[in-house]
Design a protein around this nucleic acid. Sequence first.
DNA 1: AAAAAAG
Length: 514
Amino acid sequence: MTTFADLGLSQKVLSAVTDAGYSTPTPIQAGAIPPALQRRDILGIAQTGTGKTASFVLPMLTLLEKGRARARMPRTLILEPTRELAAQVAENFEKYGKNHKLNVALLIGGVSFDEQDRKLERGADVLICTPGRLLDHCERGKLLMTGVEVFVIDEADRMLDMGFIPDIERIAKMIPFTRQTLFFSATMPPEIQKLADRFLQNPERVEVAKPSSTTKTITQRIVASHNKDYEKRAVLRDLIKAQDELKNAIIFCNRKKDVADLFRSLERHGFSVGALHGDMDQRSRTAMLQGFKDNQITLLVASDVAARGLDIPDVSHVFNFDVPIHAEDYVHRIGRTGRAGRSGQAFTLVTKSDSKYLDAIEKLIGEKIEWLSGDLSELGAPMESFESGDKGRRGRDKGRGDKDRGRDRGRDRDGRRGSSSHSDDTKPVDTVAVSQPKEPVAVTETTRTEVVNAEAKQDTRRQQNGNRNARPYPANDDGRDQRRQRHHRDHDDGPTPVGFGDDIPAFMLIAGKA
DNA sequence: AAAAAAG
């Protein structure tokens, strides 16, 4: 049987791999590492979860042992579609490069240029980037790509979906033709094949089967729900509470707004919960993901930014709050559980209008998913709407912009302020079955408002177009914003606040640069 | 019906 020692990797790399507890390479690693070490181009066709990342990180580390980086001239470049994946690759370099003295620069958006500039100035051996930020650095003229020896394009098909191909072409033009190119994609549609043909010279093609274990180790169930968000939230809560072996879970929504709404709802119901979507500020994204990995957060509500490639080894459950519109996304989402041979549970909430998407999913995976109990035809009457019992609220909305009103509509549905007797809100917080229903630790202390803010930021962006630095809520001197204080009051029935209370005039909510 | 990525 092949071991890592047979692949031609350097001692430094081998000892780091051994320390990490690995001895046997995965098929993509066994297939890609030897030719990569011989400076061949690679066409790797592999899904995430096949050990793909190490299949380029390990040979790159070995190759980088010769030579030294010069200022502003990176020696290798890796492109990733999302910031989280880029950060994950950087972590891999830390882990397997612990015996090396390499300067690894992570160039992603949403964070300050300063530290990135400093790393570039010192001379980066490895540049790990999302396309936008890399181009931004290039345009500032602080980066010379003429020294790049190894160019990695990861998740090419996803980059195509995301419209990054023109950016990648621009970047590729800046890199010398003599480079070595490692190109990875989970699938090979014609456009990707064309791209590969243009970028690669006589590549070694390494194709590995989909990890069949993913679906085998995952128990999948579908759960019927009415279409209203508050009903879906109630179904979800019941489902979560019914799990006896829920260690942690990722809950996927189709829209960023619903991520924010569901996050707030679950938080209000006392769950240990975090959120992750692309309009959150990067600090929160990083903190939420880290808090989830560290088991400080039990539930992570996420958009499809978290669907692919994120490497969290022991997620016990995946819940699809929404049926994904694209069937492949279903496979990616549920693939966040049942990893590394563990068992996993995947539940998908299905409403009547979802049936065609469900059909597409079942067709793709080649099997019918079992209903947890009953099916759509057995749904009772929808919950009574309580819109009418919701007077008072309109008064509170007076003087606030439309954007705020729009946001609060979702909030009032199942997250009413103060004490509520609505059925959706009757469960006292302390009956929650999930671990640690307490405040979700320091991580969320600093970040949870920013989930809310991100959403408002989106609105602000949309409405104000041009005032990009607008802070959606006025900050207090401790750096928190007033919205957070209001949020706190949701949890107690204290006296009506003085000052603006909930009636902060719209113009004050937009504290832009005047 | 979406999300992601530069600011």
